[in-house]
Amino acid sequence: MSAYNFAYLDEQTKRMIRRAILKAIAIPGYQVPFGSREMPLSYGWGTGGVQVTASVIGPDDVLKVIDQGADDTTNAVSIRHFFARTTGVRTTTRTDEATLIQTRHRIPETPLCAGQIMVFQVPIPEPLRWLEPRETETRTMHALEEYGVMHVRLYEDITQHGRVATAYDYPVRVNGRYIMRPSPIPKFDNPKLDRSPALLLFGAGREKRIYAVPPWTPVKSLDFDDHPFTIERWEEACALCGSRESFLDEVIVDDKGGRIFVCSDTDYCGRRREHLA
């Protein structure tokens, strides 16, 4: 790997991506097109997140990579190895030690602090895509703030199901202006986006878009006054650490469909168990 530049991408490319990131930070929630590069990982497997991380990572950073909340899932391992090999940067599984966290589908339970950067992997950046497949039209709708259709979607859910039927990638309004998809995090994690002390960066490699939520920015999940936004709850507690506050994974343990629930965030769960022991 010594033939490759620090963090794999050449400096020109990193500069191009950082310019896109700066523009995204200046316009919270707005999708900035960028010249996404072919990476050694497949499109759809985190190339957007990897390019963002590669553009902001420095030799003094401490990197955490999670997928589904766990450090040990196969893709998290693969991406962490990629950065270890191409940067030599220290990696960690501890949320409170990391300066840079790349994630797929979860925000850690441990609250983030000022100075931390969270990089989200995004499959489909466009919240209006469900109604309008054409890019030319969705761009215009964002520019003119024509967002009536987003509430139409919620209205239809309530009409059909009695409640909003979106469980993850739940659309939000950023800084009172742009509507954004927070990536397929469960709606359980949406409240963590609101006025987070951390910098939140979103990378979509295949779709070639970057967007951002600067620290302390209001982020509000879309809802109706008489059908307010709610998050998931479980009756069970984590079978390993007893938490009733965290997002739980359901694990099937026998042929008869018996199941237990465990924290999705392996770092959070592990540390709770340390304290209890």
């Binding site: 009536g148 259709v149 509430h151 139409v152 209205y155 239809e156 009409t159 008489d226 059908h227």
Partner: peptide
């Protein structure tokens, strides 16, 4: 739906009570 068709212009103008 028909209801959504009639409701959309209201929602576009900021109506937020289902």
């Amino acid at each position: 739906t028909a209801g959504a068709n009639v409701g959309e212009p209201l929602m576009a103008l900021g109506a937020r009570h289902y």
